[in-house]
Design a binder for these strands. Sequence first.
RNA 1: UCCUGAGUAGCUCAAUGGCAGAGCAUUCGGCUGUUAACCGAAGGGUUGUAGGUUCGAGUCCUACCUCAGGAGCCA
Length: 501
Amino acid sequence: MSNLPELEPKSVTNPPVATIASLAAHVGDTVTLRGWLYNIRSSGKLLFPSFRDGTGTIQGIVPKAAVSEEVFERVKSLTQESSIIVTGRVRADARAPSGFELDVENLEIVQLVPESAPYPITPKEHGTDFLMEHRHLWVRTPRQSSILRIRATIMRAAQEYFDTNGFVRTDPPILTPAACEGTSTLFELDYFGDPAFLTQSGQLYMEATALALGKVYSFGPTFRAEKSKTRRHLTEFWMIEPEVAFMDLEGDMDLAEAFLIHIVSRVLELHRADLNVIGRDIAKLEAVIAPSNQSVILSEATAGSESKDPDASKPSDTAQSLSAAKVEGAEGASAARSAFPRLSYDEAHAMLESAFKDGKLEAPHIYGDDLGSPDETYLSSQFDKPVMIHRYPAASKAFYMQPDPLDPTKALCVDVLAPEGYGEIIGGSQRVDSYDLLKARILEHGLPLSAFEWYLDLRRYGSVPHSGFGMGIERAVAWICGLDHVRETIPFARTLNRIYP
RNA sequence: UCCUGAGUAGCUCAAUGGCAGAGCAUUCGGCUGUUAACCGAAGGGUUGUAGGUUCGAGUCCUACCUCAGGAGCCA
């Protein structure tokens, strides 16, 4: 803005003496904070301005008798979200919301929000449409800031897990010549006269780099143009996708489990305060990483269905021969093993059948169909850890998934459903490694062979069994933070009806 | 794409077919421990848009627009 006041040079060049998050270590000290006015209350000759600086909030106190008339009037004139530089002494005080209070000695206004056009987001309630329209300001509120801090840790922990376990990050292109899976609706754009698309998954490219480097992962934005309008969908979202050569489906599941445990552990380690700000039930997250003998199976149906089809969860012959690779792929898994429940599709179907009979589901699950959202919600609500559903009917799954050698009508795939009804956060599979089968699958799905010649090359030259998965960051953040909508998990959500701001 | 619901003050919401209302925000006044402070006063409206029914429409009818969350699909 053009009406910014001149700053004292020292204010610009001196770093803040303290951040609000670090004030516990500065009790008794006089410090300088740089930030914004969050809210102000007054009681006659006493002012209670609350400041925020991005790391937290603290209540200041300004008795009229304690400061100059000029400073008192300046603080009194402050409007919500005016930017300030404030100096004062830190004092522990049980009456303050955070337990600490700042005895204000001096305050400089950097920019005063005009009274004629006050800050639109008040400390009172607002509707989601209004808040999304003001997302650029909404991110300033303590709750939204806490969510974004946790998101950053989840992203860092996810990369950290792969970086410290021998994976090489190889990011696939975002502009692609054709649909990766041939199923989703993609955003189309003009590429110098030719059609091109924004990527919906880097997986096919990750298979190429996995066969070059062994263990790889990618991390970046993906795009889906489907007209999905639910609390679980964004049109632009971030996905992290590992891919490992010589790893089978069982190894893939071990990897996903160790990966999730690492992420949840990091959040619990670093973000107790933020989780409290957003009101998350921390015990639910602790249950996820608790040792398996403390895992609670909430449903009788599970115990019953596990004995029905013992073969379904047995590793295939291929898997057994690859057991060394499986351990290699999921290093660290055994150290932090919490044993997420694993159900075959058949076992899950049995659970859904009995749930429907007991009136816990409105619609019956039809054997052979993919799981619907209500089905997933029911299944995940039966466990206090993420649940893995594996070996779905091949007909309902993508063309590149390896058939189960014990039952070729099933695909060697896995969906990980987050607890508390948060739905699918991970989808993975062992990939078809036979040239002939892959070619047949591409043709069966009506996909243009020419676009997949490079992908078929991966089976012509040194094909090996390999597996991987993709985790949607925003769904993981929504689950870990206990949010009811993914739009709060990303700084600027892109949804079916919103591309502003 | 389908189903359901909602659009009234800057914000959150009221208003049997019969005078357009409240709280918060803003402005003014009061208060030396406030906790989304409180108390008093003031300003603030083309009821999403276009038609229709009616003596009279925020309210009923039709179409459209915008948004929401559910299905499908997915992470």
